[in-house]
Amino acid sequence: MSIQHFRVALIPFFAAFCLPVFAHPETLVKVKDAEDQLGARVGYIELDLNSGKILESFRPEERFPMMSTFKVLLCGAVLSRVDAGQEQLGRRIHYSQNDLVKYSPVTEKHLTDGMTVRELCSAAITMSDNTAANLLLTTIGGPKELTAFLHNMGDHVTRLDRWEPELNEAIPNDERDTTMPAAMATTLRKLLTGELLTLASRQQLIDWMEADKVAGPLLRSALPAGWFIADKSGASERGSRGIIAALGPDGKPSRIVVIYTTGSQATMDERNRQIAEIGASLIKHW
């Protein structure tokens, strides 16, 4: 058993032996400061991975655009179909130039040979490839079927209504393609630790998130040596930015963190910096 498999397999085991986890309101002070700095709403939640207890939250039940963070949920739905014998990670999917949409750094290189379902999930999560996400959405029946999958998990909040890139429109008060921090954190925890997916599929999902290559300026920039993080970021119109993550010290995840912001006029660099500073406060007061 690899170190990674050891880590995921023991998450339920550690729940019975973990020390009490204490919240630190200092992080919420930073979240509120980020709102002031960005001139935008910020949603935040910090969840204990083992118990599911909410440690801190700010606007946990307000809607925010999901942006590309939905791609983790999408690959969770794909893995659920794999577990049920309805899909194979090794199945190759062929597509054409007409299928390519904006920001497809991986799929645009494989027009001649296509990509496997496994490769598409990797591209969608680690590189946020939009065509990969659309191709995967097609395999499960489209955005409405992803919403149905989430409903069956008990998440009646999170919804996907459109495809890439239209889902990134982020119109104020538009509930399409949105979630709430509390709903996203709970759903992510179920995917990573619950019985919905097999152990192998849970491991695969967290491996893809751990290999994320496009979230460096966010929480990863504040991470001390030896800490673990598996994450997925997102960005969209109207100053929207977000990240969902499982992270913790000693090389294993122990908390879920979800951060969303929307409605800012700030630059992408400034949005990144504010999220990184929230992460730094979280780690300092861990």
Rank of each mutant, 00 (worst) to 15 (best):
L247T: 03
D99S: 11
I275M: 05
T179K: 00
I125R: 00
E175K: 09
H94I: 13
A84L: 12
R92L: 12
S221C: 10
P165R: 03
A9C: 14
Q97G: 14
E145R: 12
M153G: 07
L19F: 15
G85K: 11
G154D: 08
K30V: 11
K53R: 13
P172E: 14
S240P: 05
T187R: 05
I11H: 06
K144D: 12
P12H: 13
T198G: 10
T187I: 05
L218I: 04
T267W: 03
M184W: 03
T178N: 02
S254H: 09
G154W: 15
D174I: 00
Q97W: 15
N134D: 03
D113Y: 10
P165E: 03
I283G: 01
K213H: 10
P217Q: 12
D113G: 11
E166A: 10
A225I: 10
I243S: 01
L146S: 02
A84S: 14
S80T: 12
E61I: 08
G242Q: 01
G216D: 10
M115C: 06
S68I: 03
K53E: 09
D269G: 11
T193N: 12
T193S: 14
I259V: 09
I206E: 07
L135I: 12
A40W: 06
S221V: 10
G226Q: 07
K284V: 08
T147N: 12
R41W: 05
R92Q: 09
C18W: 12
Y103E: 03
E145S: 13
M184A: 05
G234S: 00
L100V: 12
M115I: 06
A182Q: 13
W208R: 00
L219I: 14
A123T: 02
I243K: 01
W163S: 06
T193G: 10
T186K: 14
K252R: 15
K144L: 10
G90S: 14
N173L: 10
A15T: 03
V106G: 05
P12N: 13
I244A: 05
P249K: 07
D113A: 11
L79F: 01
R7A: 12
F6A: 09
T198R: 09
C18A: 14
N134T: 01
R63L: 06
I243V: 11
N173F: 10
Y260L: 08
L135F: 04
V31I: 15
L28Q: 06
H5P: 09
I229L: 07
L10K: 04
V42T: 04
G251E: 08
P253A: 14
P172L: 10
G90I: 10
Q274R: 09
S254I: 08
L111I: 12
P65M: 05
F13G: 08
L10M: 15
S57Q: 13
L223N: 02
R238S: 14
W286G: 01
W227T: 00
R176W: 07
V8M: 13
V8F: 15
P20S: 12
G90H: 14
E237V: 08
R92D: 04
L167A: 06
A9P: 12
S104L: 05
D48M: 05
D99Q: 13
D129E: 01
I206R: 10
T267I: 07
Q97L: 13
V78R: 00
R202G: 07
V8E: 11
A280N: 14
T107L: 07
T267H: 09
L197S: 02
L74P: 02
R176T: 04
L137R: 01
G251F: 07
F149C: 06
L160T: 08
P253H: 07
T69S: 03
Q86L: 13
L89D: 04
I244L: 06
P12L: 13
Y103V: 04
P253I: 07
